[in-house]
Nucleic acid binder design. Sequence first.
DNA 1: CGGAGATTTGAAGCCGCTCAATACAGGTGG
DNA 2: CCACCTGTATTGAGCGGCTTCAAATCTCCG
Lengths: 253, 253
Amino acid sequence: MFTPVLMKLKRSTALSPRDELALQQVLGRYKVIPARQDVVWDGDRPAHATVLLDGLMCRYTAMPDGRRQILSFLLPGDFCDLSALMEDRMDHAVATLATCTVAAVEHHALEHVIDTHPSIRHALWRETLRDAAIYRASLASIGRRSAYERLAHLFCEIAVRLDLVGMKRTEGYVFEATQNDIGDALGLSVVHVNRMLQQLRDDQLFTFRGSTFAIHDWGRLTEIAGFDPAYLHLDGHSSIPGIAPAATSWDVD
Amino acid sequence: MFTPVLMKLKRSTALSPRDELALQQVLGRYKVIPARQDVVWDGDRPAHATVLLDGLMCRYTAMPDGRRQILSFLLPGDFCDLSALMEDRMDHAVATLATCTVAAVEHHALEHVIDTHPSIRHALWRETLRDAAIYRASLASIGRRSAYERLAHLFCEIAVRLDLVGMKRTEGYVFEATQNDIGDALGLSVVHVNRMLQQLRDDQLFTFRGSTFAIHDWGRLTEIAGFDPAYLHLDGHSSIPGIAPAATSWDVD
DNA sequence: CGGAGATTTGAAGCCGCTCAATACAGGTGG
DNA sequence: CCACCTGTATTGAGCGGCTTCAAATCTCCG
């Protein structure tokens, strides 16, 4: 159940069996949350940290007039509100997009683990840094890329991140966001997202349909997207050959 | 010389005199760097951290075809490359926009201070979180706001951040970015930035001219921008009365 | 079978871009 | 001290990417 979290943390930081055990203990129990529901609110002062184990969530900010900006998608293994451990209040909200399984960790428990396990602290700090790197990548995308390119880039990123936690299926990747959600993430209207997705499909780059997508031409897709996975800092321990996440079907374990 | 750094860190975390001393010692010497020069490169593995003491810098990513996205502006007191302490390589570059004064800290020295001074570690972690919060705010701006609103928001943010480190002058704020830079930060063309700046001036909101700006109507500006400074987490110790950084000589009609 | 949400399609319009030229400012050398 | 030069700001005109509005089709599920 907690494998995605461990897989992800261990990629950036070597964890001893003792560290792993401490994490598993503190993660403890998990629960299921229905789709389309807020998990953390803007202005909140959470008393516990939430980790996504399965499903899809997003960080977002809502503007007074109803406009919504999705700041990032959260995949299995991601922390929803790690920042609240250090900062007083949340400055954005987090919501489920699909049915999700999450674990909660009381702040005081997590703080204790952090104080007694330096490598866990290191790993969590790196998590927050990786979040920032993802924001930077989105910023570059929204700021300087066309709608077509933005979509290409988003799907590259999601593919690599899903691979990272072993969530790739032979048929493709599960990504239960609506075209509306994607628009809100990329600063586009639903209508235009729809048209560009069709074009990407026609161009044989990838097909997104019914909350799953399959990539057809990884090389050309990354080129169009200007996708360089360096910002995801995959080079921890294990090896991702060059850029391609697809190519082989590396099964985990 | 190091006051901006201390001012900023102390706002988020209480530092003992011992902590302050340790920081001052490790910051040590400083130097001046001319404008428009790269300080940290994309792909770099810096051996030291750089702190901006005076001037203006930016983080940016350059796309293969020459497009540039400025990810954030760095003001006095900001760290250029704190993330490199934990992560192997930089995934973006940092450059000066104006003549800058910087201090450099060897990584091993900084790591030692971090290990022996928990509150400094805390303060630095919070710094990286604040960076992330600024990215999120930009993301919302670029993704969902009009050019006019984006400019309003940017100048709100810069004003507050400059206030925070005591860099406000009676005539206004020094902000030595060109309209081109601003365009690259907001995902706009120079031409359009120029036109919108004129409109903001005509609307009596603020005037940006010759690398300085003055805000004329803070209330209306924040409203148009949808600016809520919560994401800057100002509520550490000292006081910024409500929202207004200004409240000075500026005539509101 | 009906209904709600998601996707798709069409048409019209605007925000912001590109191209291009002019005005302006600061710094340099003669 | 002025002529020059380079980078920045400004203005105009035309165009296109993406939006908005609106309606039809599709999909899933109770």
